[in-house]
Design a protein around this nucleic acid. Structure first.
Lengths: 165, 165
DNA sequence: TATTGTTATACTCTATAACTATA
DNA sequence: TATAGTTATAGAGTATAACAATA
């Protein structure tokens, strides 16, 4: 059993349809150690935020990695496909899938580079730029919404604390 | 395109082997809006923590959901399989897979209930209890480690802020 | 030889839907 | 009819490994 490679299980639940996954909780659940663990607190918060994220951009068919990629592509002109993958933290093959999807949606284009014929530079299309503006507008609102329980000071504190990890 | 059901993409990257996914970043990456978003800060923090979590329990072949399930099972005697699923936030079929895995590893047992022959109550095996003790020991250390940059006060603050989501 | 993009393949996790047996 | 557990099936996401073209 020792050392067996486990590839996954880094998934966060998201209520997709109206399956049976999100019925009522039993009352009086005892969480034990979980209550003390930063990791668990973070995970629950993340679940809540993802839920709201998907509701926010549902009609645009955008996932969090797609959104961050678009932001990174706009803000780093000439970004290469492989660099994007490294920043986002996925394998080259996964970057393919991601960029394929963005390209198929007409949001991103691959541009060949004169100097080095191996590489693709990524750029938003006009449509991509328009969609990203709308996404940023909505996602800012979403972010304000999910952190509505916090004062501005607390938000600053929280971001600062999170950055330490 | 509107309203198309998207099932997934709530996955957090984890460096599993030594693939090409985790090479050096390009320098001077511009993150744009991402820097302001609580959701993004949370995601990055979560990635860092998951990474350390897996390193911590690698030899025991335990995933975060397995760990939380074991804690919940121990702390809520007579917990039913379906209740566990509801608490953790996964569908009944997914709960099956999870409990199957715990059972196959000899950590959890399904007990039939005299009153209602439809239900299974869950309990840790002796081995499960032993393993959970070890897990808690390690994961507490892991949690301290990843939040080492924080004072005790800051940890309290952070947990409190996260709980608001 | 190393790197970029690419394709093939496999694995994990999750979900929905349908089935069985109970209640 | 409704609920608990179960099984079947499909889909998304990721990874590793190998390949071609280029450097």
């Amino acid at each position: 059993m020792a050392g067996r490679r486990q590839t996954a299980s880094r998934v966060l639940p998201r209520p997709s349809g109206r399956g049976d996954a999100f019925e009522q909780w039993p009352a009086d659940v005892e969480f034990g150690v979980l209550r003390e663990l930063m990791g668990y607190a973070l995970r629950r918060a993340q679940i809540a935020i993802y839920e709201d994220f998907f509701a926010t951009v549902e009609d645009l068919d955008i996932t969090p990695p797609m959104f961050s990629s678009m932001v990174l592509i706009r803000n780093n002109p000439g970004l290469r496909q492989s660099s994007l993958g490294r920043i986002v933290g996925i394998a080259r093959s996964g970057t393919m899938t991601l960029v394929d999807r963005l390209e198929r949606a007409g949001l991103v284009q691959r541009l060949s580079v004169p100097g080095d014929r191996r590489v693709n530079e990524l750029a938003l299309t006009d449509h991509g730029n328009t969609v990203l503006d709308e996404l940023i507008r909505r996602i800012r609102a979403h972010d304000d919404r999910v952190s509505a329980g916090l004062t501005d000071d607390e938000k600053v504190t929280l971001r600062a604390l999170l950055a330490r990890f």
